[in-house]
């Protein structure tokens, strides 16, 4: 059974959403997912780039009304 954590970082500016996500990931188990909401345009590209670089898994990256919903699975 994996958990899914939600972090609402809307209103935070770069690199706030990324740092909030990484801080939450630190306390998660491998296989758990985190959904982060960010209104910072850069996050839609920065977070997937970070995920690719460090070896986690990007599950989804969707633009909503005025923000992005990005789901990441902790892979290690």
């Amino acid at each position: 059974m994996t958990d899914k954590i939600k972090v609402d970082a809307r209103g935070a500016f770069c690199p706030g959403p990324l740092m909030e996500m990484i801080a939450a990931l630190k306390h998660m188990n491998v296989g758990d997912e985190i959904e982060i909401w960010s209104s910072d345009k850069g996050s839609a590209k920065d977070i997937p780039e970070w995920v690719k670089k460090v070896g986690h898994e990007l599950v989804s990256n969707d633009e909503r009304e005025g923000y992005w919903s990005i789901v990441v699975r902790k892979a290690k």
Binding site: A12, F13, C14, P15, G16, M19, I22, A23, K26
Partner: peptide, 16 residues
């Protein structure tokens, strides 16, 4: 705009 505080970013960089 209340951008992330610089000293807080340094602290987060050290912690993470």
């Amino acid at each position: 705009k209340k951008a992330p505080d610089a000293l807080t970013l340094f602290e987060q960089g050290k912690e993470l």
